[in-house]
Amino acid sequence: MKKALIFQGGWQGHEPEKVAGILAGILEEEDFNVKITNTLTTLQEDDLTQYDLIVPNWTQGTIEKDQLQPLIDAVAQGTGLAGLHGGMGDSFRMEVDYQFMVGGQWVAHPGNDGVSYNVHILDRDDPLTKGISDFTVVSEQYYMHVDPAVKVHATTPFPNAEGPYQTNGEVDMPVVWTKRWGKGRVYYNCLGHVSEIVRMPQVMDLMKKGMTWASR
């Protein structure tokens, strides 16, 4: 049986405990033994290389170097990394090494919550998106700074809400991407502002495919 670690916490507006429970449920259905922790000290106390997958679910916050480095090293050695929304894409804003590993960083959500936007699947034959059609989300629409090395699997069009960024014209912003970090696989999904969005069938399916793909 594969082993997964979910560390949850940080800003409570993203409902980290509820979201962690949903993600754990997906993994348990895929026959993972899942450990959920609400403290970052687990990252320095556990041998992280024992896990096949680590799921960050910690928005903002701060992390000590002796907590972050074991995480970075474990992924480089082959432990998978997968997560969603601010729980992985807006964690530990001062830690550029973490952002480098993840492949991007949240910078804005023009229009804030309640924006209706389309998610476009780029390749419906890809195992990470197979069987999923384009769909609409009413939530935050993440504007990200993205590593050009990532492989993009889904996008969303900007501008959608008013703002000074509109003068730059139309862009397709990555929503789902993958990359490699040493021997490890990294999967990120921008969706999932609150548990209600995570429970959308398309988001659940994307996360199931992504987390199992990223796993060692």
Score class of each variant (00 low, 15 high):
Pro110Ala: 12
Pro110Arg: 07
Gly111Glu: 07
Gly111Leu: 13
Asn112Glu: 12
Asp113Met: 05
Asp113Cys: 04
Asp113Asn: 07
Asp113Glu: 06
Gly114Val: 12
Val115Gly: 04
Val115Phe: 05
Val115Ala: 02
Ser116His: 08
Ser116Phe: 04
Asn118Ala: 14
Asn118Trp: 09
Asn118Glu: 15
Val119Glu: 02
Val119His: 02
Val119Phe: 07
His120Asn: 12
Ile121Trp: 06
Ile121Arg: 00
Leu122Gly: 03
Leu122His: 04
Leu122Pro: 08
Leu122Asn: 05
Asp123Ser: 07
Asp123Tyr: 03
Arg124Trp: 01
Asp125Gly: 11
Asp125Ala: 00
Asp125Asn: 15
Asp125Ile: 01
Asp125Val: 05
Asp126Thr: 04
Pro127Trp: 05
Pro127Glu: 04
Pro127Gln: 04
Leu128Cys: 00
Leu128His: 00
Leu128Phe: 04
Thr129Gln: 03
Thr129Ala: 05
Lys130Leu: 03
Lys130Trp: 03
Lys130Ser: 00
Lys130Arg: 13
Lys130Pro: 00
Ile132Thr: 07
Ile132Glu: 03
Ser133Val: 10
Ser133Asp: 15
Ser133Pro: 10
Ser133Glu: 15
Asp134Gly: 10
Asp134Glu: 12
Asp134Arg: 12
Asp134Cys: 11
Phe135Ile: 08
Phe135Asp: 02
Phe135Met: 08
Phe135Cys: 09
Thr136Leu: 13
Thr136Gln: 15
Thr136Met: 10
Val137Thr: 04
Val137Tyr: 04
Val137Pro: 00
Val138Glu: 10
Ser139Tyr: 04
Ser139Gln: 01
Ser139Leu: 02
Glu140Gln: 09
Glu140Val: 06
Glu140Gly: 04
Glu140Met: 03
Glu140Thr: 04
Gln141Asn: 10
Gln141Glu: 13
Gln141Tyr: 02
Gln141Phe: 08
Gln141Trp: 11
Gln141Thr: 00
Tyr142Gly: 07
Tyr143Asn: 02
Tyr143Pro: 01
Met144Ala: 10
Met144Pro: 00
Met144Leu: 15
Met144Ile: 13
Val146His: 03
Val146Leu: 08
Val146Ser: 03
Asp147Met: 13
Asp147Ala: 12
Asp147Gln: 06
Pro148Leu: 05
Ala149Lys: 13
Ala149Val: 13
Ala149Asp: 13
Ala149Pro: 02
Val150Asp: 04
Lys151Met: 03
Lys151Phe: 03
Val152Arg: 00
Val152Ala: 05
Val152His: 00
His153Pro: 00
His153Ser: 00
Thr155Ser: 07
Thr155Phe: 10
Thr155Cys: 01
Thr155Leu: 10
Thr155Ile: 14
Thr155Pro: 02
Thr155Tyr: 11
Thr156Ser: 15
Thr156Met: 11
Thr156Leu: 02
Thr156Glu: 01
Pro157Ala: 10
Pro157Phe: 08
Pro157Cys: 01
Phe158His: 06
Pro159Met: 12
Pro159Cys: 07
Ala161Gln: 14
Ala161Asp: 10
Ala161Asn: 07
Glu162Cys: 01
Gly163His: 06
Gly163Ile: 08
Gly163Phe: 12
Gly163Arg: 11
Pro164Phe: 07
Pro164Asn: 12
Pro164His: 06
Tyr165Gln: 14
Tyr165Arg: 09
Gln166Ile: 09
Gln166Val: 14
Thr167Asp: 14
Thr167His: 13
Thr167Leu: 14
Thr167Ser: 14
Gly169Asp: 10
Gly169Ala: 09
Gly169Leu: 09
Gly169Lys: 12
Glu170Asp: 12
Val171Asn: 02
Val171Cys: 02
Asp172Pro: 00
